Amino acid sequence: MEIWIQQFMSQFGNLGVFLLIFIENVFPPIPSELILTFGGFMTASTSMSVASVIIFATLGSLLGALLLYALGYLLGSERLKPLLDQYGSIIHLSYEDVQKALKWYSRYEGKTVFFCRMVPLIRSLISIPAGMAKMSISAFILLTTLGSLIWNSVLVFAGAMLGEHWTDILTIMDTYSWITYGLLFVGLLAVIIRWIRKKD
């Protein structure tokens, strides 16, 4: 997949960045870290600029997020479950994943939409519960754009600065992902323990 992504971006430039980031938001397993850092690296040898890569990536992020927001808004929990049970494996998305994201959204609402845009995998999922909860579309667009802009900018700048060593950032991001998932797990565990204690 990595080779195909690089070839696609080399052929289509900024449009390739836009399309791949849009797809990455809808199909979470596609790594945005690879797309963005390679896009940053490409600015040294093509007509693409750091600013243009960031802009096209952010537009792709927003469009993908809006599609998932609309899915959550229009279908709701009851209609979404049978669809994900039947077709979720195709896009590597389960109803349980959505339920976890919904719990985080219910707890922190707007803050979750903003901060989760900087967390691998969850950055895509959070759009669905935001739609299910009928979050204000203007607030959703603003928070999604800001969160995506920060995430995209950091990775594109990193790719541009590292140059031929742009792949080094992928190792760092892999570590970041595991640390983030660990913290989320600990946080979820703390919530469960607190809920059990209250019940007793």
Rank of each mutant, 00 (worst) to 15 (best):
V191H: 10
L83D: 00
E109P: 00
S61P: 12
L102R: 14
R117N: 06
V154K: 02
G16V: 07
V26C: 04
I179V: 15
F8V: 07
F140R: 03
L183K: 10
Q11E: 15
W178Y: 13
A70S: 14
F140Q: 02
F115D: 02
G39V: 00
F56A: 15
S61D: 10
A51G: 01
L84I: 02
I35L: 12
R197L: 11
F38L: 04
D174A: 14
L162Q: 04
G110V: 06
K81Q: 15
S52P: 01
W166L: 08
E2K: 12
W151R: 00
I179S: 07
F27I: 11
A190T: 08
L84C: 06
S77Y: 14
A133P: 12
L142C: 09
G182D: 12
P82C: 05
Y73Q: 14
L170I: 13
S89K: 09
F140T: 08
T46Q: 09
E96L: 07
S136K: 08
L155Y: 01
N14P: 05
V113T: 15
L188Q: 11
T144C: 15
G159Y: 06
P120H: 05
E96C: 09
K134I: 03
G39R: 06
Q86E: 14
Y105W: 11
P82M: 12
W178S: 07
F114V: 11
S124G: 14
I35C: 02
D200M: 03
T175V: 12
F115S: 02
L84W: 03
C116H: 04
L67T: 11
L146I: 15
F157H: 07
T167A: 06
I141E: 11
D174H: 03
I169E: 04
L149R: 01
F22W: 13
G147M: 02
L162R: 03
A130C: 07
Q7N: 13
L149F: 15
L67D: 01
P129R: 13
S89A: 08
G131N: 11
D85P: 13
T58N: 11
K100A: 14
T43M: 05
L66F: 06
A130P: 10
V98N: 00
G88K: 06
P120N: 04
L143H: 05
F157C: 01
Y176L: 14
W151N: 00
R123A: 06
I23M: 14
I21N: 09
Q86Y: 14
G159P: 05
Y108C: 00
D200H: 05
I55G: 00
V119N: 01
I55H: 01
A65D: 14
G131D: 04
V17S: 07
L63Y: 04
G187T: 10
G147D: 07
I55C: 00
L63R: 08
G40W: 01
I30F: 13
L93P: 08
A101R: 10
Y69P: 01
V26E: 01
Y69F: 13
